[in-house]
Amino acid sequence: MIKINGEDSDAAGQTVASYLAMAGFDASRVVVELNEAIVPKGRYAETTLRDGDQVEIVCFMGGG
């Protein structure tokens, strides 16, 4: 299993790019962190998610 934003996911084997597209994220508006390291945008297509990975997908929201 993979944890994506704190939830279990069976996305192992997918690339970051394919996961973002499948889940419906706008890749230009998010940043992906894989095991606490930022994945550069240019590497989404070549970065494969593996069992046990911790993924955070974040974006800007309102705030003070």
Partner: peptide, 17 residues
């Protein structure tokens, strides 16, 4: 303008930017 950084979700289709 200040913003926060939070986990993204696909339910909210609108982006503050």
């Amino acid at each position: 303008i200040t913003l926060s950084v939070r986990r993204a979700n696909t339910k909210e289709q609108e982006n503050i930017l």
